[in-house]
Design a protein around this nucleic acid. Structure first.
Lengths: 375, 375
DNA sequence: TTGTAAGCGTTATCAG
DNA sequence: CTGATAACGCTTACAA
């Protein structure tokens, strides 16, 4: 109530109002204000609390996050390092993660680690210097640097989609095995039985390896009613449309020749393309189109990753929708738990994928090159 | 060289090494270390510099960003608030922005302002509390809060794609007028002359309004050789596929009826769909497909926004590729200039779009419903 | 219940 | 050229 309390207008124009200002206008000490801001009004005499509250209101006071950070050693910043921001999967996960962060009062710092290894530098430094409280990582690192760093700095790391060999950290992912089985069983049930798996080169990426592995395992131990399916695996680097086309054509030709040699009927069923992620889907769909193949008729098609455009390509593509939003949210949840001191051993969380049926996996009518067509 | 210099192992395990540690091991003062870290070794005696350097190396010292922030009032954090992370345009811009930030030693904080107004709260607070040094904004805000805040806090804001009425800030965007003209001229030259513009509801979004405006202006003042084109505008909310289909069908029917009434020939040329952005493209392409229209034959198609999948839809979609990467980089560049004290009046930067020709805008053969077909 | 004072890790000012 | 020392804005023992 004293007149000498500094008015906002008095202060230099772009000077933030600090806890000191509030203390002065309220006629209390910094500590009291701090207590009010943090502990709530439980610790204050009602009358004092009111005075502080009023002063805060009047001055429009907001505590400085930097100062708090310096004091606590926590920035309330979480890093999200994605392997490739161009991959719709990454973006979808990001969306979930951002939302979860915001709900928890954290900010999400984005790192796009293209293919260049040096791009990881920034992430490392930010973690190391405690600019980040934790990290959600979606890339396989060649060097073990990160692991050491994580331990040294005591900053938690959560892995999404890509497991890190030798890094004991929480791991969140879709159930790759289940997803692949869903895809193959669905196709087989519709009469497609000769598969080619198109994926990006494994390059040590755990999810790609897991899917590829699941593909082969399923073929080796098919469920009842799906016996006798065959499959090969094709790795095509991003953007190599030509190569993809050539390889797929060769595959298809071989299927034809093989069936002929064996007298037609050893393997009966249509040829189908299975893709390992959205990038592969783009690649394979493009190739199929160049080859003039009608998806769902000449050749079956189903792949992992549901996107905005999968419904619009060809007759509509059958896909596995990953629970991307959940993945992002779970990752943040996990990280926050670790930040609160959860020291339990690293967890693995696998969420199920969901099959989205479209016409690219329509019932096989014995079409295409009429190989192995039913009488 | 003294033995009592604290060894890393001596320190509590997850205790960061500070400038004090370095000073002690090097046998100099904090100030000297700070000078070495910042000013370079120009200000130090070579021998001192060497000692400091050695100590830093040995201890693996990195200055604490939080402490620096507190001192300087700068966090080296830049916010990027996108209207809709689901829009591929936003993601593409983000990519450019992230890269530019990283190159400049800044971190990019992501905000996804869905449709909910409250989601802006976080951005506001982060700016207000100086947690962010500046903001790249890609959303029209109803309230003028942001403007006031920007001025009050002295935090620069750069607008991307969407201009804010009443907010005097740098504005980066594609040349919407030019892009639309590119599209229409291209279609007209190929024989398509009866247009429908499909876009998301304007909702005060400047880029949508600008494109729509450009559409009408072009029709009103067509370039030589493109006289006599007609066009209507359709606003379809995201996800309203049914509605889009119905509206397009109605449009097409009207074109037919109109041509018949007028004796066929008043307006000669094919019917073509023009879309205002990627979301509209998805919508319209989906509708066209449901209607059984062959793009590039029954109806022409061209739209703004090039994406991974535009080549794969139908016969391949003709698009305008926005210079998304540049937009992102420019935005960051602008912001950094402001941060360095650039006080010049707000700029507008418009970058040209690039036409990507595909079969959806193939030469009109008088096909489709054979309306106005050439003799 | 409230105030005092000592930091958190830097940088910047001022002497020496 | 280098060393004290005072901020930066906040939290938190420890006193009162």
């Amino acid at each position: 109530m004293h007149e000498e309390a500094p008015r906002p207008a008095t202060r230099a124009l772009r000077q933030r109002t600090t806890i000191n200002d509030v203390a002065r206008t309220a006629g209390v000490s910094k500590a009291t204000v701090s207590r009010y801001v943090n502990g709530g009004d439980t610790l204050l005499a009602p009358e004092t609390a009111a005075r502080v509250a009023h002063a805060m209101q009047q001055l429009g006071y907001h505590p400085s996050p930097m100062a708090q950070s310096l004091k606590h050693g926590r920035t309330r910043l979480i890093g999200l390092a994605v392997a490739d921001i161009t991959n719709p999967f990454s973006v979808a996960v990001m969306q979930g993660a951002e939302r979860a962060c915001q709900e928890a009062g954290y900010l999400l710092v984005l790192f796009n680690l293209g293919n260049a290894a040096e791009r990881e530098r920034g992430v490392l430094r930010a973690l190391q210097t405690s600019q980040l409280d934790g990290l959600i990582l979606n890339r396989a690192t060649a060097t073990g640097q990160l692991r050491q760093l994580a331990l040294d700095a005591g900053k938690p790391i959560v892995l999404v989609d890509r497991r890190q060999p030798g890094l004991e950290a929480d791991f969140i992912s879709v159930d790759n095995r289940g997803a692949m089985a869903l895809l193959l069983e669905h196709l087989a049930r519709r009469g497609w039985r000769r598969f080619v798996l198109v994926s990006e080169p494994s390059a040590g990426v755990s999810s790609r390896i897991a899917r590829q592995q699941a593909f082969h395992d399923w073929l080796a131990h098919p469920p009842a009613g799906a016996e006798g399916c065959t499959g090969v695996h094709l790795e095509v680097p991003r953007g190599a449309q030509e190569e993809c086309r050539v390889q797929l054509q060769r595959w298809h030709a071989q299927q034809t020749a093989g069936a002929k040699k064996k007298g037609g009927g050893d393997v009966e069923g249509g040829c189908a393309i299975v893709t390992g992620n959205a990038v592969a889907t783009l690649l394979a769909a493009s190739a199929a189109r160049d080859l003039g193949w009608q998806l769902g008729r000449d050749v079956g098609f189903a792949g992992i990753d549901e996107t905005d455009w999968t419904a619009l390509i060809g007759p509509g593509l059958t896909t596995i929708a990953q629970p991307t939003d959940e993945l992002g949210r779970e990752a943040v949840r996990c990280l926050l738990e670790r930040l609160e001191g959860d020291m339990r051993p690293a967890r693995t969380i696998e969420l199920p994928g969901r099959l989205v049926e479209r016409a690219s996996s329509a019932v096989w009518e014995g079409g295409g090159n009429r190989l192995g067509a039913r009488p």
